[in-house]
């Protein structure tokens, strides 16, 4: 066995263990963390296949962004584990059925590939050191697959806009900061400076008048 094969089997074994952990962990947070671990391990396997761009993007997108938000939500939710397990026996047959369908699908894809004799392209082909996976991928994406790529981007943009529109609603009674309004404020709108003849009031008028004047100025604000 070469060193690459040893590494492959080691990481594949850890990947399988992590994947099993995702579905067996009792605590949802642990399950999410096992999923992160599985992603990291599959990224390493992609690295062994010399697909460094895909490997790094897997870590960047799934580990760095998607799973962080996932974990964020899972941690915030107050999940009742007992309640979650209640329907297990009821839904188990359905789950098994779907699992079987997925296995058959994966198997058929492998079988079809096997028939077509694409065995060779499935194995990693050693490239010369100057070969850049990233460049090759970029060239394909922006020439041959430009339209599908742009379409996918537009669909994603649509999804983002839709998600924002779905959650955006004005609620009454919430204090929100309006920066533009704050910046536009002028002193004249907020305070009014009133001239009062201080010494005249103290000399002549009785005390009742000055006390009557005080609430008035306060109300004017």
């Amino acid at each position: 066995m070469t060193i690459t094969e040893i590494l492959f089997y080691a990481f594949a074994a850890v990947l399988v263990v992590a994947a099993v952990g995702v579905i067996t962990a009792r605590n949802p947070v642990h399950a999410a963390l096992f999923l992160v671990f599985a992603f990291v391990n599959s990224a390493v396997i992609w690295l062994l296949l010399e697909a460094e761009f895909l490997a790094i993007v897997l870590v960047l997108v799934y580990v760095g962004a998607v799973m962080v938000l996932f974990l964020f939500v899972v941690m915030m939710l107050d999940i009742n584990i007992a309640q979650m397990r209640e329907g297990f026996t009821r839904y188990a047959p359905l789950g098994l059925l779907f699992a079987a369908i997925v296995i058959v699908e994966i198997g058929s894809v492998v079988w079809v590939k096997h028939l077509g004799g694409v065995q060779e392209s499935a194995a990693a082909i050693a490239q010369d050191p100057d070969y850049s996976n990233t460049r090759a991928l970029g060239e394909l994406l922006y020439t041959q697959y430009l339209y599908p790529f742009e379409l996918a981007a537009v669909i994603l943009l649509l999804a983002i806009v839709a998600a924002i529109v779905l959650t955006m609603r004005r609620r009454e009674g919430i204090k929100q900061q309006d920066i533009a309004a704050q910046v536009a404020v002028r002193a004249q709108d907020r305070i009014r400076i009133i001239k009062m003849d201080a010494d005249k009031a103290s000399e002549q008028t009785p005390a009742t008048e000055t006390t009557a004047g005080a609430p008035q100025t306060e109300a004017q604000r």
């Binding site: 960047l60 962080v68 996976n133």
Partner: peptide, 19 residues
């Protein structure tokens, strides 16, 4: 070759320690 992506990937992974 993909050094900049590697940096982005690892710095984004750093948030796990805090969470």
């Amino acid at each position: 070759n993909a050094g900049l992506l590697y940096i982005l990937a690892l710095t984004s992974a750093g948030v796990y320690g805090v969470i």
